[in-house]
Nucleic acid binder design. Structure first.
Length: 699
RNA sequence: GGCAGCGUAGCUCAGUUGGUUAGAGCACCGGCUUCAUAAGCCGGGUGUCGCCGGUUCAAGUCCGGCCGCUGCUACCA
């Protein structure tokens, strides 16, 4: 790659809110972005992938209060979870920051100063409902009451679900704060606004002509917002509010949507500082930012206007670089419908990782993402079929069926005649790269699979297994055929490296060393050793999917009058402490030493099969895997509490060195660890965090 | 209500500036192969391209209307 063509590309994903766990909908974006960045790096460009937790706002404040801990404790815990989930899916950030950082506070101040200097900030009073008991102003959705039009009870503060009337929360009959149950009162408070109308001309031009936006998006913006006067943007919230206090307006805090996008720059700042550089080399116009960096924001369509109106307006006012591309994707549906907790299709990243390989989802998303704004559907049956036939049946199978013939000899010393297959594959590289660069990963995957089809047809035509049986005189020919097949395989893997980094690493270990450059797709390897073949991918089995769905269903159906969505749906939401009964019912055992503990070998295991034992009252017969070929039969006293079908595929903890015990129904070779007691009837299996693998020991 | 997008084989989707008998993968059926993680190869489609109408020598592709689905509709994150 020539120096002048080396691009500087700054890439961001939208900042996940610190109020919830990462789910498979989020992952559409992070996987899409990660693939894009890995591709650019593989091509030799200087690409930087930045993200951060979005930590501020009322929802965080309320939740922390409900959980009886500080906001910073809450966001620190959530950050751990987010990072673990991202790592599990091989999302590789160059830096992952937080909007609650010194850098962000400072940069918000700088941009704020620019807005002030340009005279864009104005202030006026806003009437809002106030909860006198909780001491906070209430967003519409924190107020419920009787609809003023149709008198339906228990409606939200902005609209009636029964008669579709819209109104102000102040119009509600008998309004109630969902936070405290108190009757809210109307209070007036000063808010600060950013005037956008003076930026109208700039925005109209930028949305249409900058090339940053798909024409569909710029049309939408032109039709909806641009063309009539832009309303002022309410950018402040009165105390109490979890966020940054505005330096020149004590008692006022920046609204979370002000400091969230600045988090992109703050992350750049922290990353640059660690490299000994400056964020200005990416965000300034001209000067140190030369040649100008490209800035690519990946976002979901729900936050379009924040990134296409407010954000460019802020950057323009501050004289900073504008986004090169705002890449907008659609939502995820599961089995054709919105993700649903009751259907078991609200799939958390962590739950997925407990049951399936992240590579499968990365590939499936890649095969679906065409770079446009349409929603994509995760159809679980299709998912299994696609992953199994493409990844296992076509790609990995190529190596699986030929590598072993090269273990002793390595690749041929010169590249044999392959009828032009490798050259064809190398030629396709340009088209595949163009598809990646355009975020049309679906097209890239189709092209790659076509190459895999050609390679499999080649193997079939050459029939190496017959050469293997034919004896020594065919040995050289066999080596040549296998050399071709393995080179075609590796070429395909180079193209898949952005999507499947683990497969790329394992392929490198099999033959040729780490895959570091897209250029490796252009030249076949010769004369290098081939390591013993190890399985590179596992098939997706139906029981795993069933277990994933089962594990995603709520333990108890949600109550029809469940609280508003940003109260946590799980965990200890209440300020009251946990009951004392469980501990009291079974007091602590005598103290033991670390050596005592070490005698018990606890291992992560995967339940491969679970079946009823009809004659038994409490037992299920489980077959568990400790990784590799290690299998155990374990009888577990959990019948009636767990549906056998739902157990298959999930990870549990077993006592792996327990002496086998002959039971009435067979030999039990271990014990599955579960919590119970205190008069409660349930038996609760333990699940490791995402990322754990069968065979790992608990320390 | 308004606006936008989508609606192509059982499923998931391609279909470039309108141009010959509308394609791929999976599923399914038949045959071959048996090296490989029940993997591979060959062959098999009479689909009203949501419905109706229009423009055109020619429309899945352009225009209008209708139906269905989805999303958006700034102080909601």
């Amino acid at each position: 790659m020539n120096a002048p063509t080396r691009r500087r590309i700054l890439v961001t994903s939208a900042l996940p809110y610190a109020n919830g766990q990462i789910h498979l909908g989020h992952l559409v974006e992070y996987i899409q972005t990660d693939i894009f960045v890995r591709f650019q790096k593989l091509r030799g460009h200087e690409a930087v992938y930045l993200c951060a937790d979005d930590t501020h706002g009322t929802a965080i404040m309320i939740r922390a209060r409900a959980e009886g801990r500080s906001e910073r404790e809450l966001i620190a815990a959530m950050r751990e979870d987010h990072l673990a989930d991202f790592a599990g899916f091989r999302i590789e950030f160059d830096h992952y920051g937080s909007t609650d950082s010194d850098a962000n506070r400072r940069l918000c101040g700088e941009i704020w100063r620019s807005l002030r200097d340009k005279g864009l900030v104005v202030s006026r009073d806003v009437k809002q409902l106030f909860d006198p008991k909780a001491g906070v102003f209430l967003a519409d959705r924190f107020v419920r009451g009787t609809c003023p039009r149709c008198k339906a009870a228990d409606q939200y503060g902005d609209a009636c679900e029964k008669c579709n009337a819209t109104y102000s929360p102040a119009d509600l009959v008998d309004p109630v704060s969902t936070l405290s149950g108190a009757t809210p009162e109307i209070r007036s408070a000063e808010h600060l606004f950013v005037q956008l109308e003076p930026m109208q001309g700039f925005l109209r031009e930028w949305t249409k002509d900058s090339g940053a936006l798909d024409p569909r998006i710029s049309n939408y913006l032109t039709g909806h917002f641009l063309g009539e006067p832009l309303r002022d943007w309410d950018i402040s919230r009165p105390a109490p509010y979890f966020g940054f206090e505005i330096p020149d307006a004590p008692g006022h805090y920046w609204y979370v949507w002000f400091d969230a996008p600045v988090g992109y720059i703050a992350a750049t700042d922290e990353w640059s500082a660690a490299q000994g550089g400056s964020w200005k080399a990416w965000w300034h116009r001209g000067g140190t930012n030369e040649p100008a960096a490209e800035i690519h924001h990946f976002i979901g369509k729900d936050i379009t206007y924040f990134h296409t109106l407010f954000w460019p307006a802020m950057l323009e006012a501050a004289g900073l670089a504008l986004p090169t591309k705002v890449r907008i994707h659609g939502f995820l549906t599961v089995n054709g419908e919105k993700m649903s907790k009751s259907r078991g299709t609200f799939l958390l990243a962590r739950t997925y990782l407990d049951h399936l390989d992240p590579a499968c989802l990365r590939y499936y998303y890649a095969a679906k993402l065409s770079g446009d704004i349409d929603d994509i559907d995760l159809n679980l049956e299709d998912f299994a079929a696609k992953v199994n036939s493409d990844l296992v049946g076509k790609v990995v199978n190529l190596a699986s069926r030929t590598a072993r013939w090269l273990e002793g000899t390595g690749l041929s010393e010169t590249y044999p005649d392959d009828g032009g297959l490798f050259a064809q594959g190398a030629l396709d590289g340009a088209e595949i790269a163009a598809a990646y660069d355009d975020c049309d990963f679906a097209r890239a995957m189709r092209l790659v699979m076509a190459a895999a089809d050609r390679a499999n047809a080649y193997v079939d035509a050459e029939q190496p297994w017959k050469l293997a049986k034919a004896g020594p005189e065919s040995a050289e020919k066999l080596r040549e055929v296998a050399t071709v097949a393995l080179n075609l395989f590796r070429q395909i893997v180079v193209y898949l490296t952005p999507v499947l980094p683990d497969l790329a690493a394992e392929t490198g270990a099999l033959v040729g060393g780490p895959i570091l450059s897209w250029e490796e797709s252009r030249h076949p390897l010769t004369g290098v050793p081939v390591a013993p073949f190890k399985p590179l991918a596992r098939r997706v089995e139906a029981p795993q999917l069933e277990a994933l769905v089962a594990a995603s269903k709520p333990a108890t159906p949600p109550s029809p009058l469940s609280p508003p969505s940003n109260l946590p749906s799980s965990g200890n939401a209440s300020v009251t402490t946990d009951p004392a009964e469980p501990l009291a019912a079974e007091p602590l055992a005598p103290q033991c030493t670390i050596d005592d503990f070490a005698k018990v070998d606890l291992r992560v295991a995967r339940i491969l099969a679970a079946e009823e034992v009809p004659e038994a009252k409490k037992l299920l017969k489980l077959t568990v895997s400790l990784g590799g070929e290690e299998r155990r039969t374990v009888f577990a006293g959990i019948k009636g509490f767990h549906d056998p079908a739902a157990l298959e595929g999930r990870l549990v903890v077993v006592v792996a060195n327990l002496a086998p015990r002959q039971m009435k129904f067979g030999l039990s070779e271990g014990m599955v660890v579960a919590a119970s007691g205190a008069g409660a009837t349930g038996v609760y299996l333990l699940s490791p965090d995402s990322g754990a693998l069968p065979g790992m020991r608990l320390h």
